[in-house]
Design a protein around this nucleic acid. Structure first.
Length: 638
RNA sequence: GCUGACGUAGCUCAAUUGGCGGAGCAGCUGAUUUGUAAUCAGCAGGUUGCGAGUUCGAUUCUCGCCGUCAGCUCCA
């Protein structure tokens, strides 16, 4: 007998093997109609899988987020049902639910076309209208092989089952799939979905295996949610840094230069320069020293560092210089280490913190390049801290302060992940454990919340990853801090301790923005191109209403410029409306409109980006003071 | 790198079955002097990504290369 505890605390005794459907039905027929799945002792299962264990028992209806996963998984089967009807040649792969939807992989001779997608969607609606129940069956290996005799991908999966593992199949109408479940009761539950696109996907994610055709779809409980999701996609598209980057004249790439190499236009360079200036001041305040290291470096250095061994496929080919091979640097650490080793170091010198906006080049495969976010040449705001093991906690604390201050300035909420020892790792497990413990303790002490990514560390040490959350809720890779036990060994780093004996320091690698290219690309999307005043390439545009106001406007522009404001005069012979529109389109934070009245009273009519007609007349002196104050405060708005 | 799609003026897009490559915006010139998101007119702008091939004739069909996009794999 199993004991089920209902949400109201009531207990039910049922025989092992009872179907959840019967339990739900005994609670209420109305509930059974709405039930999509159940949760038993924390695990989701469908209504037709026999109960194997007792525990907390909850009925999942369309209100429950975990039921949505079940619905989406069923959606994948419905998709496969439709595809099989129209393309009987399609061999089925896997079809799981994913965030926001589901996909299904097929092996076909002729890839799907966009027209196919529309036909599949229509066919899916028929399958849904036919309201096939999902029927579960448990089968033995031999029967399963018979059922999937024409599906080589399923046979491959079948071969991997353990002897006593339960093999289950799910059938909806004409379609049968090898599947663990769970599923909703019948196909009619899928109502609000849309097929999105097709793409190639390697069988089992292995690039050495054949490529399958994947169909992606989204699915939701309600029409509103589906529409909201599609709207979110639109919103992401509207913010795309590649489109805005061109519209706002921030950057470009050029076939003649080569893919993945960014040309920073003046407006983009202004943003980057502001960030670099800000960060330079910030890190100097936080105890860093700036260094510069060469872009092209003798290959020998990367033999010592191990990059040639572990990172070779990401490095650009060697350049022959007088018989010696040189490489473009893919990372800045070896250079910083050489500076550390340029003289003997005492424990009194530690910690040493070297920082550099170091431009690195990495060979990325052509298919992964993406605007500014994934490139082949980029500048890291890189730093390396050389310290004793005892200094690690205080260094981490300093870093948490630094990161917090910086991310607040850009208006990013963030979360932290602690990544621990991976399977292949360097150094003694005790060393790892103590390092991980140190990191965790520092954060706990500060009341800093974090999650643990088990086994996600680099092979040479554990790390902290900061994940940024942007204005539309997407996560971005933010600052990272990595402890390194490896490079100090490889380079045989030493300092002289108080005991006059040599000791090995520890290294901390850390970046804040990571890559300037990626960070600025991310900021474009975060702000939707409407940069806060301090970052805006053009901060104010002075717009005379007519020729009578041009002289006054010129002098206002000059006063702004001499106060350090990036201001421009727009005295083109266009209508006022045209020039306002132009400034709005370029997302310039402030427009200072100057007419006859303003010119006579040394004032401007202020129009704030995005605020429409709402305007305020203020004296030029007040305007200059206000704008300078907001720049200095690095205010997020406007 | 792999699968698929795409590549026409600075930008966004047109161009019947293969038959003289167009438009809007931006640019230039002129007129207009504007009170808060596109004033009017004229002009100029192209070896249709590059290179072969088929054809009387190729933006259109075929092949190769380059680049871009959606994913996969990989990642700051």
């Amino acid at each position: 007998m199993l004991t089920l505890t209902l949400p109201d605390g009531a207990e039910r005794q049922v025989e092992e093997g009872t179907l959840p459907r019967d339990v739900v039905g005994s609670i209420g027929q109305r509930l059974l109609r709405d039930a999509l799945a159940v949760e038993v002792d924390g695990d989701v299962q469908d209504l037709i899988t026999p109960l194997r264990k007792g525990g907390d028992f909850k009925v999942l209806t369309a209100k429950h987020p975990r039921a949505l996963d079940v619905l989406r998984h069923s959606g994948a089967h419905i998709l496969a049902t439709a595809v099989r009807r129209l393309r009987p040649d399609a061999k089925i792969g896997f079809g799981p639910s994913i965030e926001d939807g589901f996909y299904y992989d097929f092996e076909v001779d002729e890839p799907f076309t966009p027209d196919d997608l529309a036909r599949f969607e229509t066919e899916m609606r028929k399958v849904i209208a036919e309201s096939y129940p999902f029927i579960r069956a448990e089968v033995n290996q031999a029967d399963a092989r018979k059922k999937f005799a024409d599906d080589p991908l399923k046979l491959e999966r079948l071969a991997e089952f353990d002897e006593n593992e339960i093999i289950s199949t799910y059938t909806d109408g004409p379609f049968i799939d090898l599947c663990r479940g769970p599923h909703v009761p019948d196909t009619s539950h899928l109502k609000h979905f849309k097929l999105l696109h097709t793409a190639g996907a390697y069988w089992r994610g292995d690039e050495k295996r054949q490529m399958l055709q994947r169909i992606y779809a989204t699915a939701w409980f309600s029409k509103e949610e589906l529409e909201a999701y599609l709207h979110r996609l639109e919103e992401a598209k509207r913010r795309d840094h590649r489109t805005l980057g061109q519209q706002l004249d921030l950057y470009s790439t050029d076939q003649r230069v080569g893919p993945g190499l960014i040309l920073w236009h003046p407006r983009g360079a202004t943003i980057r320069n502001e960030i670099e200036n800000y960060e330079r001041d910030l890190i100097i305040r936080h105890g860093y020293e700036l260094v510069y290291t060469p872009h092209i470096v003798s290959e020998k250095l990367f033999q010592i560092s191990g990059h040639l061994e572990n990172f070779k496929e990401s490095m650009f080919g060697g350049v022959d210089v007088e018989g010696a091979s040189y490489r473009l640097k893919p990372m800045n650490c070896p250079g910083h280490i050489c500076i550390f080793q340029s003289r003997s170091r005492s424990y009194r010198d530690l910690p040493i913190r070297y920082a550099e906006f170091g431009t690195v080049y990495r060979y990325e495969r052509s298919g992964v390049l993406h605007g500014m976010l994934r490139v082949r040449g980029f500048t890291q705001d890189d730093a390396h801290v050389f310290c004793t093991p005892e200094q690690v906690p205080s260094e981490i604390e300093r870093l948490l302060d630094l990161v917090h201050e910086m991310l607040e300035t850009f208006g990013y909420p963030y979360t932290i992940e602690l990544s621990t020892r991976p399977e292949k790792a360097l150094g003694a497990p005790e060393m790892w454990r103590s390092a991980e413990q140190t990191l965790a303790d520092v954060m706990k002490k500060r009341g800093q919340e974090f999650t643990i990514d088990e086994g996600g560390g680099a092979f040479y040490g554990p790390k902290l990853d900061f994940k940024l959350i942007d204005a539309i809720g997407r996560k971005w890779q933010g600052p990272t801090v990595q402890l390194d036990f490896n490079l100090p060994e490889r380079f045989e780093l030493e300092y002289t301790g108080a005991d006059n004996a040599p000791h090995r320091p520890l290294m901390l690698h850390r970046v804040l923005v990571g890559s300037m290219e990626r960070f600025v690309g991310g900021l474009v999307e975060h702000y939707a191109g409407a940069f806060p005043l301090w970052l805006a390439p053009e901060q104010a545009r002075v717009i005379p209403i007519s020729d009578e106001a041009v002289e006054a406007s010129k002098s206002i522009t000059l006063r702004l410029e001499s106060a350090g404001v990036r201001a421009h005069l727009d005295d083109r012979s266009e209508t006022l409306n045209y020039r306002i529109r132009d400034a709005e389109t370029l997302k310039i934070p402030f427009m200072a409109v100057v007419g006859k009245r303003e010119a006579a009273s040394d004032s401007i009519a202020l129009r704030v980006r995005g605020a429409g007609k709402k305007q305020e007349v203020m004296s030029v002196a007040n305007f200059v003071a206000m704008i300078v104050g907001q720049i200095e405060a690095r205010a997020l708005k406007p």
